[in-house]
Design a protein around this nucleic acid. Sequence first.
DNA 1: GGAGGAAAAACTGTCAACAGTTTTTTGTAA
DNA 2: TTACAAAAAACTGTTGACAGTTTTTCCTCC
Lengths: 231, 231
Amino acid sequence: MSITPSVQVGVVPFEPLGTHVLKQFRNLILSGEVAPGDTLPETELASLFKVSRGPIRDAISALEREGLVVSEPRRRARVVVLDEKDIEEIYSLRRSLELLAAERAARHATEEDFAEMRDILTRMETELNEGDPIQLSHLDTAFHDVIYRASRHGRLYKAWTEIRSQVTFFLITRNKAAVSSKSNAIEEHHSLLEALMSRDPERVVKLTDNHLLSAYERLSSAMKDSPTTSS
Amino acid sequence: MSITPSVQVGVVPFEPLGTHVLKQFRNLILSGEVAPGDTLPETELASLFKVSRGPIRDAISALEREGLVVSEPRRRARVVVLDEKDIEEIYSLRRSLELLAAERAARHATEEDFAEMRDILTRMETELNEGDPIQLSHLDTAFHDVIYRASRHGRLYKAWTEIRSQVTFFLITRNKAAVSSKSNAIEEHHSLLEALMSRDPERVVKLTDNHLLSAYERLSSAMKDSPTTSS
DNA sequence: GGAGGAAAAACTGTCAACAGTTTTTTGTAA
DNA sequence: TTACAAAAAACTGTTGACAGTTTTTCCTCC
């Protein structure tokens, strides 16, 4: 017993403050507590999160990478305002990325990956009944996150993380879809998992393409009803 | 003449110091003056660039996004060491991105875009004769950069910028290809431009796919001769 | 009342300093 | 030597302060 981890005990190797702020902050935006178009003065956030401006700047910079925040030099950062053109961009880029991920995941996914997907699907069904649409959206993103990780392609995963939050944002704010529609989406996830487990890249790619198009159409039609308002 | 731009005169609206450092720093890495595996102490860089650590941190963070630098919390950043697996990742991701870009550029590219591409091709031929391989590599990347911009897809362009420097890095450090091979590559660019101007998306996509595969094979074989050394 | 401009307030970019960690150097024993 | 531990040096994360810019408020004039 020669190792004495005086500070570093748990699994978390005490992350930088900015990382902690980032997580909280991202949730504030995704939950809508901070609205599109809102300005984000570093000073204000610093006192809100009780840290200095350094870590705040790190968090804002990260959120900008994720596409949830926009900023120009010497101007205050703002929560991004997304419109229908953005939905198309995200859909088309995501399609390119995810078809690649699907093909590779079909070859490289492990039993652990499948177990994680099954677990997420179970929780999705629970949320569908309990009716927490926000949690359901998070689980949807989480399912696809497993596929990207299962593709065993670091750069592809990184590219996905830079649109992931925007995808979640749209799912949360625009998915007025009926329960039946959401139920369909879960069915599609089931089929996807099944195809992955059968190691059939072609089928996985095809199902993925169909699934993403369905999701795009669901969002796109919801968008026409209630476009995101600018401030 | 009521406007008196005491400081802000040129086109450049005085960029943040970190941006300036980033450009210089990136060149230092791409030119090989800072080698793969080298550590990058903020303090040292701060005195090198004659700024405080703030802007240096910004620049390192940006270079990390570009994949030229890796870092973990509380450890010094290092210049990334890339191997054959990285070449495959970059190739496969780039292929997905660029096929999408090609298809859209064929539809959206303007006369200005074509003019820029022609200009780059002219300069490539000059460099091929004058024999500055580094400049030739930069021009290669620049040509593809125009295509991505011509695709009129902000997020796609952003995704490209996050592997672009790595692509350039490989072109510079690994392209031992003979002049004849480089000449072929320039030919391929010419065909690509021609297809773009004829607004034939299918042909553009096909040519792009072939072009990227050729480039991948050129790099991949060069890699086997002289793999990047770790420190 | 509304437009325009000056004054005040708020905010960003940058820097230097401090605390606590990681890395290197030095010293000691096998 | 070689291995290991302690001490010293170097480095990162974070903070608070200052300069200069942007944004807001307030005032004046039409």
